[in-house]
């Protein structure tokens, strides 16, 4: 495609992108407003303030960011490795019961969380993980979403690579960990973003499993800012929500760097 044709397309794409973040503009601008102006469309620049952020920093949100970082990072890293292994086995290896295992795993995606919440709580508590980081982390590692996506990805993976590895005397596991997994970046990057975000924004489970204020994650802390019975301080909530989302924005910008090119094909050459 010529560069000329790209210019209108680029403009179209950027305009759509700006529409996408328009609601976020209201989040940002709202967090700088005085409480009484929060739902006004016009922005009165002499009426903007940092007070909301000052107030947000006094809530337990800042303290809870560390907990969320820890939980989300560990879940993401461990889940990626486990899910890649399973996805690979389901896509590329032959073993008895394959269809059943795949179907069984996918079916675990289909239960509404509200219903398994109570039994899950019982299981986790009986394993001695309630009120600890383990209880926040371990149950969240296992879900079929990543397994499914890895499986789909590996089904298209070029066979030549593994065959070359076997020729060099590598075992299946060796070929996977040393050749295949390092070339899976194109799928690992989106999944990193997906897992991290999902855990960063997880709310109901951390609320249920943990009674210890020291282990609060950001969403539980944020809910505590929102949750007055008859009155919501919207400017404070918006500022707090923005603070909560900032680490995610930063992660997205960092991850962009790795999304640049398809790695798999360049690996063959």
């Amino acid at each position: 495609m010529g560069t000329k044709r790209k210019i209108p397309l680029s403009i179209f794409a950027i305009i759509c992108g700006i529409f996408m973040i328009l609601p976020i503009y209201f989040l940002v601008i709202g967090s700088f407003k005085m409480p009484n102006d929060v739902f006004e469309l016009e922005v009165n620049f002499s009426h903007l303030t940092f007070d909301n952020f000052r107030a947000a920093f006094e809530t337990p949100i800042i303290r809870s960011i560390w907990n969320s970082l820890l939980v989300s990072t560990v879940v993401t890293v461990v889940a990626l490795i486990f899910h890649a292994m399973s996805g690979y086995a389901l896509a590329r290896l032959e073993f008895p019961g394959k269809t059943f295992v795949f179907g069984w795993m996918i079916s675990t995606l289909m239960v509404p969380f509200t219903v398994i919440m109570i039994p899950l709580y019982m299981v986790t508590k009986n394993l001695g993980m309630a009120n600890s980081y383990l209880g926040l982390i371990i149950p969240m590692i296992f879900n079929a979403y990543g397994i499914f996506l890895f499986r789909q990805f590996y089904r298209d993976f070029p066979k030549e690579l593994e065959e070359a590895a076997y020729m060099e005397g590598l075992s299946i596991a060796g070929a996977f960990f040393r050749i295949v997994l390092p070339l899976s970046k194109p799928i690992i990057i989106p999944l990193t973003i997906g897992f991290f975000t999902a855990n960063w924004n997880n709310y109901l489970w951390p609320l249920i499993i943990n009674q210890n204020e020291k282990l609060w994650v950001v969403q539980v802390a944020l809910a505590n800012v929102i949750g007055a019975e008859h009155e919501t301080q919207w400017t404070l909530v918006l500022a707090a929500a923005l603070v909560c989302a900032l680490p995610m924005f930063i992660l997205f910008f960092i991850m962009q760097k790795y999304l640049v090119e398809g790695v798999k094909m360049t690996g063959i050459k």
Partner: peptide, 15 residues
């Protein structure tokens, strides 16, 4: 473009 499209994903659904 990709970053702009992705930003809404970062914000908690409640907000």
């Amino acid at each position: 473009t990709r970053t702009l499209f992705l930003l809404p994903f970062a914000i908690t659904s409640v907000i």
